[in-house]
Design a protein around this nucleic acid. Sequence first.
DNA 1: CTAGGGTTAG
Length: 667
Amino acid sequence: MNKGNRFFTIASSQCESLLRNFSAPNFLSETKKLHALIITSGLLSSSQLCSNLATTYAQCHHVSYASQLFDKLPKRSLFSWNTMMRMYVQMGRPNDALNVFVEMIHSGRGRPDNFTYPIVIKACSELLFFDMGIGVHGQTVKSGFDLDTFVQNSLLAMYMVVGETEEAQLVFDLMVEPTVVSWNSLISGYFRNSYAEEALRVYSRMMDEGVGPDCATLVSVLPACGVLKNVEVGREVHALALERGFWGNVVVRNALLDMYVKCGQMKEARLLLNGMNEKDVVTWTTLINGYVVNGDAKNALILCRTMQLEGVKPNLVSVTSLLSACGDLVSLRHGKCLHAWAIRQNLESEVVVETALVDMYAKCSDSSLSYKVFMKTSKKRTAPWNAVLSGFVHNKLARNAVQLFKQMLAENVRPDSPTLNSLLPAYAILADLKQAINIHCYLIRLGFLCKLEVASMLVDIYSKCGSLGYAHQVFDIIPPKDKDIIIWSAIIAAYGKHGHGEMAVSLFYQMVQSGEKPNEVTFTSVLHACSHAGLVDEGLSLFNLMLKKYQVIPRVDHYTCIVDLLGRAGRLNDAYNLIRTMPITHNHAIWGALLGACVIHENVELGEIAARWTFELEPENTGNYVLLAKLYAAVGRWRDAEMVRDMVNEVGLRKLPAHSSVEVSNM
DNA sequence: CTAGGGTTAG
């Protein structure tokens, strides 16, 4: 042996024990040094050491060294197979993990064990490889590993991920001793598959059976309390968190905070935040977003300042929420500030931020900027298209919306239900029958027509186009038992709009008979139908029905319909008294209804009162001046009529220009 | 060595 090499050699037993200790990513450089030492010591020929080195590299997440060494191994231990697969799953490469698994099976060089299956099953569920997952499940049954708790838990999780809740429940029911992990998977799985009630039921069963919950339990059950707005159970969980010492976990605290937010308990949420001494960016963002979704955008922006003052930087999620707040406040100034901030933070090319920016500019009525941001986004995702579409419709740029939708199809971007929810109102604005038939055919082809909200919007579109026949056809497609209050209201409004009062009223009673409880919107539609068709008695009795039987608190538009009804019947004083005695504040519409009636019945005294109110409440509407002039002319007061007409011209000059169109250039 | 968890646009 060469004496000079003595200091640089190392015994293979030493290597083995060192390698065993280097089993985490932060030992990568040590592993590399040891690797070099093994080579210079001539120990690489030892297959045992090579195997150890490969697995250590796998545990250090060094894919290329691990796989190079692993591929050359003459004999592979089960441990090394498993470690390779786990490395790939942990590195977010489940596909490669499955390739290793397939190689293992086909080469006949290894038999999967109870450690292999959970890794493989996890890879299947991450790839949504449902069929393969079932196959692996079958293999576990054949080999008897399906009785292993870890295997069962991973199977349960996989079935939940792919949406097979019944299969998951079956796995759970067959477990001899489900652990807290099994219960947690069941709870969060039901929640993620939108069975929130079931999630709560499982939780209470778990508590009844005396299974000790852990942090994950609380974090799994709290979102279910949130969507169900079940603050009672939420408070119980809160108490449990304090009692069992889970309060120290920031994730639990954030989940609790979000539960209060989702239940609309903003005061409690705020108190909770104020009482926390450790707050992370998620804590703040949860409350900021809470203010936004609970309609208090102003406080969201204020809270952002507070957060920054406490030294916490907003993240991508915070910015999207805050941009939404700016849209709600129609505050272009704040929105632009946030846009600039997002650019500085290099967040502006994140899809969620881009989408939020498009949406914010649209809500602030700046369609050009909205479109400009959209042009810079990646056009592959549906979300930015939806945002710019809904923005166009929001700003009444219906033609642009339809044009953009066609472009979207030309570029093979797949529309989803939000796309249609944004787009279809554009067709209602256009009121173009040919276009309506076009989109109708398209919806049939894509199978979107079975969706109730889509059908309801189509009813509205045909109604706006003046085609009651088509509207009714669409209405009839929906089976009676599936018809909801929205589609009923749409068809009632359609008939009402075109003066078919009797039909509207008849449909209203059909709806009641079908077991649907009319709401304030339905009553608005049917009352409007009555006033439009002059069905005075019918309208009054329906109004009575609304107050007495259905206990609907009337809004100003209900009163407007009644004023219109009474007015048409010549009962002008009754109408006037109703306005004066109703328990809510009047608006321009109700006085407009009275003014219209006064013109028909040539009542100057009340007409002047009504007109004065409309001028006050709606000074830019020239129609009211025209009505008053018409009234004066009808009773022969020509000079007064002339004077009012002159006022129209003055008002007309002050009128704002109509919305400008946005140029949709070729992309 | 293996299984379960929170905030996000339209």
